[in-house]
Design a protein around this nucleic acid. Structure first.
Lengths: 193, 193
DNA sequence: CGCGGGTTTGATGATGCTCAAGCCCGGTGG
DNA sequence: CCACCGGGCTTGAGCATCATCAAACCCGCG
């Protein structure tokens, strides 16, 4: 159940056998069906979720009803509304599954205990948050300064595989463009080589 | 020297007189002249800076030579490249002063000691980082989904005063539009009331 | 006075959006 | 098994927004 989790964790910090064994108690495993919510806007984000299997996304819906995808989480990634999770304020994001998924949930209380028992995990989560910050800064600068095509190319270069797994209109939403525009960009790119 | 600093800190956490007195040793005060760098891309960001007086900005310069402003820091705000500061990796950002400025610098070593002596500060900095995250998420969604005009209006509503203090072409850079476009937007808004 | 940076204004063009229609394909019910 | 959806992707025409290039203007400063 935790194979992928340990594999990812051990890329950043090295856990002993005993530490791994001690971890397990802190996580709750949960299955999500396609389109099922993990979090709905207005609720408090009680868990950080590690994706063992499947794909999730977090997104907001604006007044005009348009969705804006904040993040995708492929297998081996974490997803949560960190702000709501840390502060206990209601979230403005929805999180749901693009396909059937298996998750490991970590509540904030469990996280505290985990940090206390295995302090290395503080480092692990700090690294995750830092990487998230970097990624968001890059995405912001990209959206401010690059064309839709450039942003798309960067995205698929950074995450080949995403293309097969995520419906195109959601990639468009993530990039902040319409599905029509993305379709045309892909046509361009296809004919250009 | 630390008046504004204590005023801002006490909005989030309450320090006793003794705690305030104990703080002072951890900060280095520094004056910056207009256009002077606090950090240059390629160097490691050794300090978080609290702005007592003046205005700073952080920005990157892309291959085409265009500047992209990541953040402004008005009086009472913090500025740093958090990633470089925390990891010790070289920064990709420049930070400089838009006008003569007075800063309080906090090195990461000093920050550690400060946290140790007055743990409340951990909370304070966590709150700062959270707010920064929120702000960046909002800005990202804005840049993906709103028009240049809407983004501009939101910016000046959130920060009236910035307009007087920051040259217009830098606001344009922050918004990811050209100075010409910003000029036209302002004209529009002026005639429209 | 003249220079230079910042802002404005105008003309033109590219990028991406909107609206509308068609297509492809997997799923459902007759 | 086939007919018929319906959702997602594509295609097209026209339009809005914003960038680019160029020129003028404004104003503080040496």
């Amino acid at each position: 159940m935790l194979e992928l989790f340990f594999k990812k964790v051990n890329e950043k910090i090295n856990l002993t056998e005993e530490e791994q064994a001690a971890c397990a108690q802190y996580f709750i495993s949960k299955k999500l069906r396609k389109k099922q919510y993990l979090l709905q806007a207005g609720d408090v984000c009680k868990y950080s979720a590690f994706v063992e299997k499947g794909i999730l996304r977090s997104y907001t819906t604006d007044e005009k009803g348009a969705e804006h995808i904040m993040q995708f989480a492929l297998e081996g990634w974490w997803i949560a509304d960190m702000y709501s999770f840390l502060t206990g304020e209601p979230s403005i994001y929805n999180i749901d599954a693009l396909e059937d998924a298996e998750l490991l949930l970590l509540s904030s209380a469990a996280q505290e205990k985990l940090f206390h028992q295995i302090p290395k995990f503080e480092r692990y989560f700090r690294i995750l948050i830092q990487n998230n910050m970097i990624a968001m800064q890059r995405r912001l600068i990209g959206s401010l300064s690059l064309s839709a095509e450039e942003n798309y190319v960067h995205l698929i270069n950074a995450n080949p595989g995403m293309l097969q797994l995520v419906p195109q209109h959601m990639i468009a939403s993530y990039l902040g463009i319409t599905p029509e525009t993305l379709s045309r960009i892909r046509k361009q790119l296809a004919t250009r080589r």
